[in-house]
Computed example of a mutant assay.
Amino acid sequence: MMPAITPSTLEVGTGANSRPIAVERRAGAAPGLFWLNGFKSDMGGSKAIAVDAYGAAHGLAVTRFDYSGHGRSGGEFLQGTVSRWLEEALAVFALTEGPQIVLGSSLGGWLALLLNRALRRAGSGRVKELILVAPAVDATQDLMLAGFSRKELKSLEERGYVERASQYGPEPYVYTRGLIEDGRTHLMFDGVIETGCPVTILQGGKDPDVPQEHALKLVSHLLHDPVTLTLIPDGDHRLSRPEDIRRLEDAIGRAVAD
């Protein structure tokens, strides 16, 4: 019988910054699988569920959670920043044991790299491999701010936020001044990115949100660690079709076997 999912709530932050983070963990062997969602996504998404199913089928530990302002976690979405979500990722990661394969989609890809960097600076080498799906590294600067129109830049200055229609749901995406300004403190493309572990990148060739050029830019900054980039010519941003999920599963299998 496969271990059941254990849901829990983790309080992160203190005082007015405290927020309850919804976590789901499945017990299993090492290396564990640690999943990081994309912007406005949650741990009930198709890729997150596929990662959990893979872990269950192969007896691996799996950890998933929702950022504050997302899914079942507390906190206000409009207060969300890279710093807050990274703090939450580190707090949840501390619940895990042994080597972990860290997987991140879109914004979660950036957070995966930031998480790994923070752990390495603290002397932890528990990240066995990074698997990044359409990684939106430096997204606040290169993919959000750089793409704003004059009207949107004026809205950001005067109203403190920008609204954009989403092709993934009825509610618009909201990008706040706080998110953009905080993102500047976490930029990674200003130098070499050292991971200390292998990196696998899955990138769609028809991704309108994180173009393939962005993935190539990331590769150009990973100078000292093994990198595998799989470009899926007809793939979109989500990469959640059955064939895309199989590629993700194959990447996990290779990381576990290495």
Rank of each mutant, 00 (worst) to 15 (best):
G253S: 13
G109R: 10
G104K: 12
I101E: 02
R177H: 06
E163A: 10
V51Y: 05
L223D: 09
V62A: 15
S149E: 05
E152S: 11
D225Y: 04
L132K: 04
Q100L: 15
P242H: 08
A112T: 04
N37E: 07
T200Q: 02
L60F: 11
A27R: 12
A257S: 15
L90C: 06
L222T: 09
P135N: 11
D138Y: 03
T195E: 11
H58V: 13
Q141T: 15
A91L: 04
L114W: 10
V219Y: 02
E171C: 05
A255C: 04
D190Q: 10
V62I: 03
G204P: 02
L95F: 07
L36E: 03
N37D: 09
G75P: 02
L95C: 03
W85E: 08
I201A: 02
A89H: 14
G13M: 11
V127W: 07
I193A: 12
D52K: 11
F189Q: 04
L222R: 03
A50M: 10
Q203C: 01
A4M: 14
R159S: 12
L113T: 13
L239F: 01
V174C: 14
T9N: 07
H224S: 07
G59F: 10
E129R: 15
V92I: 09
L103M: 15
A255L: 07
E194G: 00
P242F: 08
G109F: 05
V162K: 10
H70I: 11
V133W: 11
G169T: 07
G204N: 07
Q167H: 09
K154F: 06
I193M: 01
F148T: 01
A112P: 06
V227Y: 08
L153V: 05
L143M: 01
V174A: 04
R84C: 08
N37R: 00
A136L: 05
V12H: 05
L103F: 14
A134E: 01
A118V: 13
G44L: 06
N116Q: 11
L179M: 10
R184F: 13
E24V: 02
L78K: 10
K47L: 12
I232G: 00
R177D: 05
E163S: 12
